[in-house]
Amino acid sequence: MDPRRNHRRAAVPDRGGLVAGVAAGALADRYRARRVVLVSQALLVLAFAAFALLPPSLPLFYMAYFMLAVLGAGTMTMTWSRAITGWFVAGRGLALGLSLVGTGLIGALLPSYVGWLVSHYGWQGAYLGLAALPLVLGMPLTFLFFREPEEAGVVGSQAPAVDAIGHSIAQALRTRCFWQMTIAFSVVAVAISGVNVHAVPLLTDRGVTPATAAALAGLIGLAVTAGRLVSGYLLDRIRGPLVAFGMFGLPALACVLLSVAGANVWLCGLAIAVVGLAAGAEHDIAAFFCARYFGRHHYGKIYGLLYTLYGVGAGLGPLLAGWAVERAGDYALALHAASAMFAVAAALILTLRPPPQLERREVAA
């Protein structure tokens, strides 16, 4: 079977997480992120364990997977980053990057862990092994060490002015800044997911051997981790729109390079790694911008909505890339479209302006 035609099955959006993202953020704003994370982790334990009891029914499996995403929404980026943005001001960018590195590392290690579980205990045992992770590791660490500064009795005297202003979600929705960010991050998400999900067939379509293509696709995980650290470090030292322009502008060139590199392994690997850097930087930059421009009072709701909207783009990317391949017969059209999307997003971010009451502070920074 042609792997290019599996995009509809392999790239179904995480609809449950999208549905629950805003709700999880709102709960974190009201009841503190720590409580939301602990409850969500407990529900994840039950949800993973329930998979081991499922009868052989595809509709039930899809329903259970949807509920897994809903129940686990409290462990997504908006809860963790809400606390990080409270504790850190001067080093906020790097702190956000470091806090998100764990997802990349777990993503790299988890397939081997699941494979070992399946080989020794079957698929039911694998789900029970997954349930053990939040129970044995996640919940104890969250309970012992995860706090927001308000819970620890830290007064926000060193918080930036935007934190004191604290836009509501209704106020954020009335700003050009929010929608410009939303369009930029959504377009980037479409381009990133389209390239990353199709990485192996894309490379083989260029003439790279399947084994080499799989090895090059493995660079994505490393590049995602590097992208989070690099973007976080730069956000603390350079104006945010300039950092984002670089992180989203370079992949535009990388996609052009992929379209002309043929079977050159070094050029293909370089291009794939650059797109991976953008994938790692996107969440870090979005979280940083939300805190900087809209404050922390309603951070969970605002970032939860932004996450949901650009999450839709991440779900559509592989579908649109697959459609382009079916229309054109190869990946050239998809790569040119991705390049254009990266360029549009970079331009939108470069021209980003903060809400009017913060414009003077942003210029001074």
Rank of each mutant, 00 (worst) to 15 (best):
P3K: 05
V22L: 11
G25N: 04
A28F: 00
R30H: 10
R34V: 11
V36L: 08
V37T: 11
L43T: 10
L44Y: 13
A49E: 08
F51D: 09
L53C: 15
S57W: 09
L68S: 04
V70D: 02
V70Y: 10
A90E: 15
G104F: 00
A108N: 05
L109S: 11
Y113K: 02
Q124W: 07
G129E: 03
L141I: 13
E151P: 06
E151C: 12
A152I: 09
V154N: 12
G156I: 12
G166N: 07
R174W: 11
R176A: 12
F178Y: 10
A184Y: 03
V195I: 09
N196R: 04
H198Y: 01
V200E: 06
T209K: 08
A213F: 05
A214I: 11
G218Y: 02
A223V: 05
V224L: 12
V230Q: 08
P241C: 07
A244R: 00
F245V: 10
V260E: 11
V265Y: 02
G269H: 00
L270T: 10
L270G: 00
I272N: 00
A273I: 08
V275W: 00
G276E: 00
D284I: 02
F288A: 04
F289T: 02
C290L: 15
A291I: 05
H298E: 12
Y299D: 00
Y299S: 03
G304F: 03
L309T: 07
L309K: 00
L320C: 01
W323R: 10
G329V: 09
H336S: 08
A340R: 02
L348P: 02
P356E: 06
